[in-house]
Simulated assay, not measured.
Amino acid sequence: MEEMRRGVPTWQEELASLMDGGLQYDDGSPIGQDSRSGFESPVDGSGSGSESTESLKDQVTGFMKSWGEMLMDLAVGCKDVVQQTLVSEDSVVVRKLRKPAAKLSFLNEYLPEDRDPAHAWPVIFFVFLIALAGVGPVCS
């Protein structure tokens, strides 16, 4: 594995090379150095101690963790948008489905008392679809 990585710098080495003078603040001080106090930041690229190398497995693991976190944030944002636009009381979907759902409200009498119809009917509908899909090939 180390033979494959020969010559490829780790992200710490790349960051250190940028801080050695590649990027600077407006006041002319390098990014790796705090302009207010004169102390250097922990990642200064000086290479004190033994040189640490980051394996490909560590890089892939870090990438996958960060990718998963970003995906979770995206999913939370999409869920919020759907709740605010489709599920709210004044949305077009709810207004159009309110009248047909009111005509079928007599079916709620057949549900157990402790079940919420908003949760029970989608389950019943999807179980019916799965059963219908299973019976469909047998009948034809």
Results as ranks from 00 to 15, higher is better:
Ser91Gly: 07
Pro42Ile: 06
Tyr110Ala: 13
Ala131Pro: 03
Ser50Gln: 15
Asp80Arg: 07
Leu56Tyr: 03
Ser48Cys: 08
Ser35Thr: 11
Ile31His: 01
Asp20Trp: 02
Glu109Gln: 11
Leu97Val: 03
Met72Ile: 10
Arg98Tyr: 13
Leu18Asn: 02
Asp90Arg: 10
Ser35Glu: 08
Arg5Pro: 03
Asp44Pro: 05
Ser52Lys: 15
Phe126His: 05
Val92Arg: 12
Ala120Phe: 01
Lys103Met: 13
Arg95Phe: 06
Ser17Pro: 04
Ser66Thr: 13
Thr85Phe: 06
Asn108Phe: 06
Leu111Lys: 03
Cys139Asn: 14
Met64Val: 04
Ala131Asn: 06
Val93Pro: 02
Ala118Ile: 09
Val43Ser: 09
Leu56Thr: 08
Asp80Thr: 14
Pro112Gln: 06
Ser29Val: 07
Gly47Pro: 05
Val138Tyr: 01
Asp26Trp: 02
Ser35Leu: 02
Ala16Arg: 00
Asp20Gly: 09
Asp34Asn: 13
Val76Gln: 14
Gln84Met: 15
Pro30Thr: 03
Leu56Cys: 04
Ser35Asp: 09
Arg115Glu: 13
Glu3Ile: 02
Val76Met: 14
Asp73His: 14
Ser140Asn: 14
Ala101Trp: 08
Glu113Trp: 03
Asp90Met: 11
Val87Asn: 08
Ile31Lys: 00
Cys78Ile: 14
Glu3Cys: 07
Ile124Gly: 06
Leu104Ile: 10
Ser88Phe: 11
Ala120Ser: 12
Leu15Asn: 01
Tyr110Trp: 06
Pro100Gln: 09
Ser48Ala: 15
Ala75Ile: 12
Val93Glu: 06
Ser37Glu: 04
Lys103His: 12
Glu54Gln: 13
Leu86Met: 11
Gln12Met: 04
Pro117Ala: 12
Gly68Leu: 00
Asp26Leu: 03
Pro137Trp: 07
Asp114Gln: 08
Thr61Phe: 01
Phe128Ile: 01
Lys65Val: 14
